[in-house]
Design a binder for these strands. Structure first.
Length: 519
RNA sequence: GGGGCGGUAGCUCAGCCGGUCAGAGCAGUGGACUCAUAAUCCAUCGGUCACGGGUUCAAGUCCCGUCCGCCCUACCA
């Protein structure tokens, strides 16, 4: 049923000046799992991620480091952002940088079209500008400075002085799209998810929309406004367009039709840009709005939103070095209800790793493979007459397959994993009840022994397929040990329980070794 | 000031339109078992569902108010 349908999914593009932390990695992993899952369901899938490299802040840090902004961005992309994707094992199909020609050229095309169609006008703008935020601030967002900034106004977020700027700006007539946006939210209740995010957006748009300043003339690190090269495009306007410039907008109509619209996965901090400004921009240009915008929650550390400034930021490698990328992926996607805030703690991570991955799934794989090796000489046994318990396992495999795919289709990754884990638990329980080690002692029970092991073997293979989007490394090892044909990533996940059996098992190292705490 | 979300067992959280909804996992305790990564399985302890009212035959589940946490947004100045 999933055949031939197209599924494009995106992460936000990273602001290169940021330091990668587990929040970035969380967004990437969630998006990657959705993409892998759809890919394995036969969908024509495309996962896009990338970097946002324009703006005054980058210009300034580059200058401070004595290099050009492009050199600065190149360095950060190579040293921080591409490595982040490797750290958490992301299988993206494309990586766009906003400094690439395919982006800049088509941003200009897009902008020119809005200009030609009367959606842009010239205006004056005066306001306090925070370089850190890359945006103008309202009075309410400013605080009186202290210490060295005594007497100045400082940004409430960055605690650095803001600058009073006065500039000619080009404005996007966003206010004209309020009604169309409301109609969109009405007609497509799933356009903004989860429900809490949709409520935020609705109340915001209902309260009225202002026009949006979309150019800057005080610095030049950005895409030039095509009809006035003394201005560069406002970074956010520029950044949002990556979603279409990356898939051929203005350049390759066939590709664009194939890949757009995409489902956006974002953090809730940038909800408004994606659920209001972005669709308004697209409406103005006569381009389809996104398939949907899904805002996930914050990772809370010690009950607070994780933040770089509060030093609660955690680098993904801190986790993957000890637990591995599979565990990172599994932990954040299973422990957190996708869309809600979730608490992170090392204790919880370690506990879940041990209980669920090592003792639950890993040990299950280990005991099944070991018994087939020991009792059947490594030859995959064939099932004979099936008992009620065997049929029950088969039906749980079916249920896990159906339920997890249904959950993924509604972006409930957390539910998909939970549905799959029922099979892990069922198989461990099945083995305890059937006691193949006892059957093995009685030659007359040979057929039953082989049937039990065949049933467990089959369930394990189904698990490998179902968990491959979340645990790509471990399931690949397991697939090999099961002696199954092809790669696990090639298996249809929406028919996970129909995989083709192998003939011989091979030794399996511990998928999730126990972690001895040395501290 | 307006708005959004949340406050459920020690911990992390499920509980859709009101009627076995008082739950799960982990931790704790007791027992079984040995194929396996000292793993697995079973049983069990544990909560006045933030607080106060209200609607109802019936309310974590709806309404009002209060307190607490987080987030978005405004303004007097």
């Amino acid at each position: 049923m999933a055949d031939a349908s197209s599924f494009s999914v995106t992460t936000p593009i990273f602001y290169v000046n940021d330091v990668p932390h587990i929040g970035h990695a969380y967004t990437e992993v969630a998006t990657d799992v959705l993409a892998r899952w759809h890919r394995q369901a036969g969908d024509d899938t495309w996962m896009l991620t990338g970097t946002d490299e324009h703006g005054q802040k980058i210009l300034r840090t580059a200058t401070a480091n004595g290099v050009t902004p492009k050199e600065w961005a190149d360095k950060l992309v190579a040293e921080a952002w591409v490595p982040l994707l490797e750290t958490v094992d992301i299988a993206n199909d494309d990586f766009i940088r906003t400094t690439e020609d395919r982006h800049e050229t088509n941003v200009q095309k897009f902008l020119q079209k809005l200009y030609d169609d009367g959606h842009i006008y010239t205006g004056e703008y005066e306001g306090y500008y925070c370089v850190g935020c890359e945006e103008y601030k309202q009075q309410s967002e400013l605080l009186p400075g202290e210490g060295e900034y005594e007497g100045q106004l400082v940004c409430a977020i960055h605690s650095k002085p803001v600058e009073l700027l006065h500039e000619k700006n080009y404005f996007f007539r966003m206010s004209a799209f309020a009604e169309q946006l409301l109609a969109l939210y009405e007609e497509r209740p799933d356009f903004v998810q989860p429900e809490s995010a949709r409520n935020e957006v609705l109340s915001f748009v209902r309260s009225g929309l202002a026009d949006l300043s979309i150019s800057r003339s005080t610095f030049d690190w950005g895409v030039k406004v095509p009809w006035d090269d003394s201005h560069v495009v406002y970074v956010w306007f520029d950044a949002l367009l990556n979603y279409i410039t990356a898939v051929g907008y203005g350049q390759d109509d066939a590709e664009f039709t194939r890949r757009w619209p995409a489902q956006h996965i974002i953090g809730k901090d940038i909800l408004r840009f994606h659920a209001v400004i972005w669709p308004a921009m697209l409406m103005a240009a006569g381009v389809d709005v996104p398939r949907g915008v899904f805002a996930h929650g914050w990772l809370l550390v010690g009950g607070e939103k994780m933040s770089k400034s509060k030093l609660t930021g955690i680098a993904p490698e801190q986790i993957t070095e000890t637990f591995g990328s599979d565990a990172f992926r599994y932990y954040f996607l299973s422990a957190i209800n996708f869309g809600q805030d979730g608490s992170f703690s090392w204790e919880d991570l370690a506990a879940r790793y041990q209980a669920e991955l090592a003792n639950g799934f890993g040990n299950l794989a280990s005991r099944v493979v070991a018994m087939i090796t020991r009792y059947c000489g490594g030859v995959v046994p064939a099932a004979a007459e099936l008992s009620a318990a065997d049929h029950e396992i088969a039906s749980i495999e079916q249920r896990a397959t159906d339920a997890s795919w249904a959950a993924v289709e509604r972006l409930a990754v957390h539910d998909a994993i939970a549905a799959t884990w029922e099979l892990v638990d069922a198989l461990n329980g099945y083995l305890t009840v059937e006691e193949p080690w006892t059957l093995a002692k009685d030659p007359h029970q040979r057929a039953r022994l082989e049937t039990v092991l065949a049933t467990a073997y089959h369930g394990l293979g189904t698990l490998a397929v179902l968990l491959s989007p979340v645990l790509p490394k471990a399931t690949a090892k397991l697939w090999t040990a099961l002696g199954a044909p092809g790669t696990v990533q090639e298996q249809r996940i929406d028919r996970a329980n129909e995989w083709t059996l192998g003939e011989r098992v091979s030794p399996l190292e511990a998928l999730f070794p126990r972690i001895e705490v040395a501290e």
